[in-house]
Computed example of a mutant assay.
Amino acid sequence: MKKQFIAVEGPIGVGKSSLAHKLSQTFNYYEEKEIVNENPFLSDFYEDISKWSFQTEMFFLCNRYKQFQDLASISTGIVSDYHIYKNKIFANNTLTPTEFSKFSRIYDILTEDLEMPNIIIFLDADLEVLKKRIALRNRSFEHQIEDDYLLNLKRDYNAYYSSLEADGERVIHIDTTDLDFMKQENDYNYILNLVKPLIGGNEHE
């Protein structure tokens, strides 16, 4: 039987890493963590997106490609706090049409033989909630994120979810605006009850 490979996705600050960590502990799955702080272009990117977007997106793509490639050796279930497809979502918002066309061709070549997540959890939240969560984690390079950028990401993630749902993929959309699954057990159990049917309800005892 093919191993379960869960990806948690959504806009910046929505709680992807926190939920992925909790799910990995609940189901005893391998936890795959996104590389963010190691990107040497990120601070410059948020200061001047048009100037640094291609370098930033290519760094992320190459690193995430290598991370997904390495996951082939993992025999247990996997929970990742990102899906490599997010590269196209972000790149579509930052690159020129010419750059995005080149980026997309490289993406298609790199990902054509990768094992992809077979369950995707999309998290979302209202703009003001996202901004508060971003402020709380206090990453210096995120202080300059503009509202329009977050709103565009929310729009594109919702469009991606809708396309996968229409194709019959195993996807869940969860609005976390009024949820605190890190502190409130009932909120986390609510999410678990949505996820378990997709993976057969197996839980690490």
Rank of each mutant, 00 (worst) to 15 (best):
E203L: 13
N152S: 10
A135N: 06
E9P: 04
Y157N: 01
H204W: 14
I172V: 14
A135E: 09
S18G: 07
I121V: 15
H21A: 12
D81H: 00
L110Q: 06
K33H: 05
I35P: 02
R170C: 12
L23I: 13
L71R: 12
S50C: 05
N189K: 10
S53K: 00
M1L: 13
Q144D: 08
L164N: 06
D108N: 14
S104N: 14
F100H: 07
D147V: 01
L127T: 09
E146T: 07
L71V: 09
E165Q: 11
I119C: 11
E57L: 03
N118Q: 10
Y149H: 08
L71N: 15
Y161A: 05
E112S: 15
G200L: 07
G200W: 03
N138K: 15
E115F: 08
Y46W: 08
S73W: 09
H83G: 03
D44V: 03
A20K: 01
K131Y: 06
I84K: 01
L151P: 00
D70L: 14
I89G: 08
L136K: 15
S17G: 12
P197G: 09
L127D: 04
L71C: 14
K16A: 05
F181K: 05
V129P: 00
F41D: 00
P11W: 02
E57F: 01
G13I: 06
I89C: 09
R155N: 14
A125D: 01
W52M: 02
N189F: 06
V129R: 08
F45Q: 02
L23W: 03
P97R: 09
D180P: 02
G200H: 02
T111I: 10
